[in-house]
């Protein structure tokens, strides 16, 4: 069978047998792919240091009749290895990679998860604030999964939302009369931050800073929405 090459990030590596590794890769045009990397754990590894988290690689894959593709070679395009020089950045990047794995689908041609992961790692490597970047990444992921913040109209009754108190349920705005049965009050500043986080282009994510006060309001709501949208709780959610 013919081999194909594609740009990819490693999302997960599971040791298999003595020296092999089952890898989950995120590609730009085919979504998530599982591949067997034979001999990946030997000292003279055929993949060198490139087959690791936080590396953008060109992966050569050979499809298999039995199902799982073989990863035949890996060439390093960019390494975001400076992330591991700081504990908080490493933890943030690990969370971003784990959520990318949970949020992406096999065979999904949408480039968004790949582009968001790449932009987030670039921003972390470039010195952006890890806490803000994680929150923006979470908000964008939730939006990508279909839970975007709907501004202007109440998602409960469809009526307009006034300038007074703002209430939020699953990252959607609700009016004062729907609020009692639908959750939490947040400030206009938090709503604006939420909207800005959704709108900001990937390339400018590190320019948006979320203050600790705003993050206190947004954090639990965003994490709750993320868990619901993913249908699973990421292992790294508590650690971060």
């Amino acid at each position: 069978m013919r081999t194909s090459t594609t740009k990819a990030f490693v999302l997960r590596m599971i040791p298999y047998r003595d020296a092999d590794m089952v890898c989950t890769l995120l590609t730009r045009t085919e979504g998530k792919i599982s591949a067997m990397a034979r001999g990946a754990r030997r000292s003279k590894r055929r993949f060198g240091g490139a087959l690791d988290y936080f590396c953008l690689v060109e992966a050569e894959l050979r499809p298999s009749k039995s199902g799982m593709a073989s990863l035949t070679s890996v060439n390093l395009i960019s390494s975001y290895s400076r992330i591991t020089e700081d504990v908080e950045r490493f933890t943030a990047a690990s969370h971003i990679v784990e959520v990318s794995r949970l949020a992406s689908k096999e065979g999904d041609p949408s480039p968004q998860p790949f582009d968001l992961l790449q932009a987030s790692l670039e921003a972390l490597q470039g010195g952006g604030d890890p806490k803000s970047l994680v929150r923006i990444f979470q908000i964008k992921t939730v939006a990508h999964l279909g839970y975007a913040l709907a501004g202007g109209h109440c998602t409960g009754c469809g009526g307009p939302i006034g300038d007074g108190e703002t209430h939020l349920s699953d990252l959607s705005l609700v009016c004062s009369s729907c609020a009692p049965r639908m959750s939490k009050t947040i400030t206009q500043g938090a709503v604006k931050t939420l909207e800005a986080a959704q709108r900001i282009p990937y390339s400018r994510m590190s320019t948006l800073s979320i203050t600790p006060t705003l993050d206190q309001q947004l954090g639990p709501l965003v994490q709750n929405a993320l868990t619901r949208a993913l249908g699973a709780t990421p292992n790294s959610l508590d650690i971060f």
Partner: peptide, 15 residues
């Protein structure tokens, strides 16, 4: 181990 998670563990230990 000289991989991403091993390096991060080394960093925690150093600290």
């Amino acid at each position: 181990n000289p991989n991403v998670e091993g390096e991060a563990t080394a960093l925690y230990l150093k600290r």
